[in-house]
Simulated scan of single mutants.
Amino acid sequence: MYDHLRKSIESQELAPLERIVQERVAEEMSTSRTPVREALNRLIQDGLVTWVAGAGFFVSQLRRKDVEETQHLRRILEVEALRLALPAYTPADIRHLRSIYLEMVEADPDRADYVDLTRRFHQALVGPCPNELLLKHIDEVWTVASYAKVIGRYGETQESVDIMIADHFEIIAALESEDPAAAITLLEEHLASVHTSITHILAEDEV
């Protein structure tokens, strides 16, 4: 139930400020209100849902500052992790990365788990990094609910998806060519582009 509601929010199936009716969700999921209420309380802790006394549960509005700071942190951590990972890269690591890339190419960007595909690609990209604490912090960045939600919106347009897929392809090509400097530069440029797009998305919400 929790995963279902979270993905619905991250994919914008449930829009910001939309009221979540427990009875309706319970009926759709063929369950009682109890697991729905428990899931909603967890989502409140994640910052994805807000409880308004006398009105009910609502999808939370994004906080621009939180999302931008999270993306900034991600850029710092992920680039450093790739830098440390490169000496340990093997052909098997690149094949794994390419398999996720191909899954993204063939996937429907509108599917609820497309954010998970994006996350899997970037986690695989830095996977060979020997610094386990650094990898843990990167995973924690991806679990910030508001960040995952806006990343889902980044893939709303075909243009954004095409750019993301092209960026991923170029990073893989640099790894296959054993060009570490190019791989790092391409990742830096990709994450900077994502940051710019996220800023535009949040700015539009404020209009």
Rank of each mutant, 00 (worst) to 15 (best):
L5Q: 08
D66Y: 02
G155C: 14
V105L: 08
E103S: 15
D162V: 03
L202W: 12
E69D: 09
L40C: 09
N41C: 01
L82H: 03
W51I: 04
A192N: 11
S32V: 09
E69T: 05
T31V: 10
R33A: 14
L14I: 14
L48D: 06
R75E: 03
R119W: 03
T31D: 06
V150Q: 09
A182L: 10
Q158L: 12
R98Y: 06
V25M: 14
I44M: 12
K149M: 10
F169S: 09
L73F: 08
Q45Y: 05
I100H: 06
P128M: 11
H168P: 02
I44C: 11
I9S: 09
P180K: 08
D66P: 01
L191N: 06
P91L: 00
R63M: 12
L14G: 04
E80P: 01
A173V: 09
Y154W: 13
I44H: 13
A88F: 11
Q61V: 13
Y114T: 13
A166I: 06
A148R: 11
R33T: 10
L202K: 07
S99M: 11
W142T: 03
T90G: 08
P16V: 02
L5H: 04
R6D: 15
A85N: 00
E188A: 05
L187C: 03
V21H: 13
R98G: 06
P109N: 00
S60P: 05
L73S: 10
V79M: 02
Q61N: 10
E188F: 00
G56T: 14
E159T: 15
R37I: 14
H200Y: 02
D66M: 02
A85G: 06
E140Q: 13
L82P: 00
A173F: 03
E10K: 08
Y89Q: 01
P91T: 03
H4L: 08
R33Y: 12
I163N: 14
S197P: 03
S8W: 13
T90M: 10
